[in-house]
């Protein structure tokens, strides 16, 4: 009597008491699966996210801008690495995650399937896309899985530079010539809605959310995070004298939040399905880079073998 507590119940009580789960702890299989899906998807987003920005490295308008952009893209590669490593603590091999990305089985944030035709996009991405990512990632520093939470702490520290450099780029344009200001506005027009989509489906259409919240993998719902982002970002746009492309956007005194228009969910699902402007290009480029890098991996293996053989030779000679 009363001793028949299932492992799942024990796990839930453990998580409810705000304890962190570590790699060798017992966890429900679905908790493990959910984390592998979420963390690898997060890692893929960092890696694929390098592409739209790398597009401007060789055409940055100044050496200063180029150095900053290089440093930022380099950070994204690092973030991808922290996250792949966190997923590997759950027993998922790195090669499998890469294969799933390339086959289309695994997803990444749909925002990176939009093109970056303008320099202003480098600013808007830092400001809005990294801003939205920060909103989500700050929450994830308190996620119940220890290695994921620790990776997020590191990432959030670095993201702050990303968002501020982005805002600086947009600010320079917004305070520049009328043409420059128009560039900033045009870029905001294209990125606003896809940025809101980054938080995922609305709460009543988000099948995995409830369980994730219960396990404290997530601590805030998609709609809550989206609202927080809108509330923070609207005054930032006002400061720049830029207009957010949403006629329904207005302050709601009663709620203490901004009201905003309906997201085009048909577009959201279409891009996830693979029909965004750049889906095919992004994966094709990833595959190409991976294949073209094969000789580096082979050379590294050959060198390591040679070094090991030399060491052995030295040891037996001694």
């Amino acid at each position: 009597m009363g001793t028949n507590v299932s492992l799942e119940d024990k796990f839930q009580a453990y998580v409810d008491a705000e304890n962190k789960v570590e790699p060798k702890d017992w966890m429900p299989e679905k908790y493990r699966k959910t984390l592998i899906r979420q963390i690898s998807q997060h890692a893929h987003s960092e890696i694929i996210g390098m592409q739209p920005e790398a597009n401007w490295i060789t055409r940055a308008p100044s050496l200063r801008a180029k150095l900053i952009l290089l440093a930022k893209v380099q950070d994204e590669a690092g973030h991808g690495l922290y996250l792949y490593s966190a997923a590997e603590t759950l027993g998922e091999p790195r090669e499998k995650m890469i294969a799933d990305l390339q086959s289309g089985k695994a997803k990444y944030s749909s925002i990176f399937n939009y093109p970056t035709p303008s320099w202003a996009d480098m600013g808007t991405i830092g400001w809005l896309v990294d801003g939205a990512a920060i909103q989500n990632q700050v929450m994830l520093t308190r996620t119940s899985y220890g290695p994921y939470a620790r990776a997020m702490v590191k990432i959030c520290k670095e993201e702050s530079f990303h968002q501020r450099q982005g805002y600086e780029v947009v600010m320079k344009l917004a305070q520049g010539t009328p043409e420059q200001k128009a560039m900033a506005q045009e870029s905001l027009n294209r990125w606003w809605w896809p940025s809101l989509m980054m938080f995922g489906p609305s709460d009543d259409n988000s099948p995995n959310s409830e369980q994730s919240m219960k396990w404290k993998i997530k601590r805030k719902s998609n709609d809550t995070l989206r609202q927080e982002f809108v509330d923070k970002t609207v005054p930032q746009a006002e400061y720049l004298g830029l207009t957010i492309p949403d006629p329904d956007l207005k302050w709601n005194e009663e709620r203490g939040h901004y009201d905003f228009g309906e997201i085009n969910w048909a577009e959201f699902y279409d891009v996830i399905k693979g029909n965004g402007p750049c889906n095919k290009e992004r994966i094709a480029h990833h595959v190409k880079a991976h294949e073209e890098g094969a000789w580096v991996r082979e050379a590294a293996n050959a060198y390591a073998k040679k070094q090991a053989a030399r060491k052995e030779g030295d040891a037996s000679a001694a």
């Binding site: 150095l67 900053i68 530079f161 501020r164 805002y167 600086e168 600010m171 005054p235 930032q236 400061y239």
Partner: peptide
Amino acid sequence: YRHPTFYDIPDDVEH
């Protein structure tokens, strides 16, 4: 430039 403090963001801009 890898540090956030490198960028001058006006105090009026919050968050």
